[in-house]
Computed example of a mutant assay.
Amino acid sequence: MPSLRQRVLAVSRTLILTLAATLLLINLAAILYGVFMRYLAGGAPIWTDELARFLIIATVMLAAGAVWVEGGHMRVALIERLLPRALARVLNLYQWLLTLVLALGGAWFSYRYALSVGMFTTSGLGISRTIPLMSLPLGFALLAWHALWYGPAPLPTITEEVA
């Protein structure tokens, strides 16, 4: 039977990746609409480019924590494999703490920044800049959430099979 930690991570990853996939589909629809309007209807509304840009940033930020837990991000784990087991554990603890500190710091600073630009509006959508920028602190907070639940264990690595 899976532990509470594993269940929380599985449910959280599933929900977040589903939300990120939905945002990606909306992004695709906005881009296709913009292309259709530009090349077939004679002129695209300016908001399609801006919406696509905000959606791709939100998609990446929301999915970052789930991808980090799966080991699907770009990293080199060579040092971990070459170190003795005790030193590898220390390195894993260091990486975990660094991830937590950077994610929490990113959440805090990006939240403060998103609130500070609330008086400005976006050029295409005409909404407060705070709304699209809130994907940054949310994404960093989700990365910290996933890292906290994952703990200082070694991250999974994706290995290539040699034919």
Rank of each mutant, 00 (worst) to 15 (best):
F109Q: 10
R53T: 15
F120L: 12
Y33E: 12
I16A: 06
R53C: 10
L91A: 05
Y39D: 05
A153K: 12
P137F: 01
W96Q: 01
T22V: 14
R7E: 11
H146L: 00
I16Y: 05
L100V: 07
A41V: 15
L125S: 07
L138V: 14
A103D: 01
A44N: 04
A144E: 07
W47K: 05
L104H: 07
L4F: 10
R89Y: 07
L97W: 02
L143N: 08
V67A: 13
T130W: 09
L136H: 04
A21P: 09
Q95V: 15
R53M: 15
L97D: 05
L148P: 05
T48I: 04
L138Q: 07
A141W: 03
A103L: 03
T22G: 15
G126C: 09
V11W: 10
R129W: 09
V8D: 04
D49A: 14
L133T: 11
L87N: 11
W96Y: 08
V60W: 13
V76W: 09
L98V: 12
G43I: 10
L55W: 06
E50M: 00
M37C: 12
A41T: 11
V162G: 13
S3H: 01
F54I: 04
E50Y: 00
I31S: 00
F36S: 11
E80K: 06
T59Y: 07
A21F: 09
Y150Q: 07
P152K: 01
T22D: 06
G34N: 04
G105M: 01
